[in-house]
Computed example of a mutant assay.
Amino acid sequence: MKREDIAQYSYRYAGNWKAIEQAILKEEENPCYKVYEPYITYLDPEYPEEFRQLDYPPWVLFYRGNIHLLKKRKITIIGSREISARGKYYTRQVCAKLRKDFVLISGLAKGVDALVHESCLQDGQTIAIIGSGLETHYPVCNEKLYQELSQNHLILSEWPGYVRVQRFHFPWRNRLLAALGEKIIVTQAKYKSGTMITVQEALQLGKDVYCLPYPLNEVEGSGCNQLIQEGASLYIEDVFE
């Protein structure tokens, strides 16, 4: 089995993990076409060791930007799409502290994700893991940010470029956000959100999860408070020295 075969299986089956697995096991013949997007596969030495710990490690990672960022120390910072004033303050403070020593990972969504990436543009480094192929720039409001990251930072996707956004992609993508960072920090989350899915993935991987506390009357941070009550660590700057 060659790396080119795996990439072509991904193109044939629109990045469907199970379909690619079956094609590998059966050693299906591939049509003769070239995958033009840069990529790394499970077979490559550049492939992140963090993903090899997953039950379903991505077969292929298509990328734009600096793939060497995968070899640096990394922390994942996540939170709500609808970000509050307190959420903005928390996120900016955390990023200002950690971007000096870590590559910051998030999901290129609105809200907390976008703020994490933006905080690294001038004097940091960041990785975005997205829920579609690289030809789809979603959400549209992050177009300028997408262009900046694809040139000077790194964007990853396990879907071929032509694959559009689908709802089920995001919870599936969240396992990669959980796996890639040494630790996970939640700066804002409600009780029920995609952020909580990522946290559960991180806990299953044995990752440390840190949260910032919110006043009890602020619904926007109710998920953070719940996670702290359930045993997540309170974010303290000195922990990351």
Rank of each mutant, 00 (worst) to 15 (best):
Y36N: 14
E37A: 14
E37C: 06
E37P: 06
E37Y: 11
E37M: 15
P38R: 01
P38Y: 07
P38G: 08
P38K: 11
P38Q: 12
Y39V: 08
Y39N: 05
Y39Q: 09
Y39F: 15
Y39W: 12
I40P: 00
I40L: 07
I40M: 01
T41W: 05
T41M: 05
T41F: 00
T41I: 09
T41A: 02
L43S: 02
D44I: 09
D44W: 04
D44L: 02
P45T: 03
P45C: 03
E46K: 07
Y47L: 01
Y47A: 01
Y47C: 00
P48M: 05
P48C: 06
E49I: 10
E49C: 05
E49K: 12
E49L: 13
E49A: 13
E49V: 05
E50A: 15
E50R: 01
F51W: 15
F51R: 08
R52N: 03
R52E: 04
R52I: 02
R52M: 09
Q53S: 13
Q53L: 10
Q53T: 13
L54M: 08
L54T: 09
D55P: 03
D55S: 14
D55K: 11
D55E: 14
Y56D: 11
Y56V: 02
Y56T: 14
P57I: 11
P57R: 06
P57L: 10
P57F: 06
P58N: 11
P58H: 09
W59M: 04
W59D: 02
W59P: 07
V60F: 07
V60T: 14
V60K: 03
L61A: 01
L61C: 04
L61K: 05
L61M: 10
F62M: 12
F62V: 14
F62E: 11
F62S: 13
Y63M: 11
Y63D: 12
Y63K: 12
Y63C: 04
Y63G: 12
R64N: 11
R64I: 08
R64A: 12
R64T: 13
G65I: 10
G65N: 12
G65K: 10
N66S: 07
N66D: 15
N66C: 04
I67S: 03
I67E: 00
I67K: 04
I67G: 00
H68S: 12
H68P: 00
H68N: 14
H68D: 14
L69G: 03
L70C: 06
L70M: 08
L70G: 07
K71G: 13
K71T: 15
K71R: 13
K71N: 13
K72H: 11
K72Y: 05
K72S: 15
R73K: 15
R73A: 11
R73E: 14
R73P: 09
K74C: 08
K74L: 04
K74H: 10
K74M: 09
I75W: 00
T76F: 13
T76K: 06
T76M: 08
T76I: 08
I77E: 10
I77V: 15
I77K: 02
I77F: 09
I77G: 05
I78W: 04
I78G: 02
I78F: 08
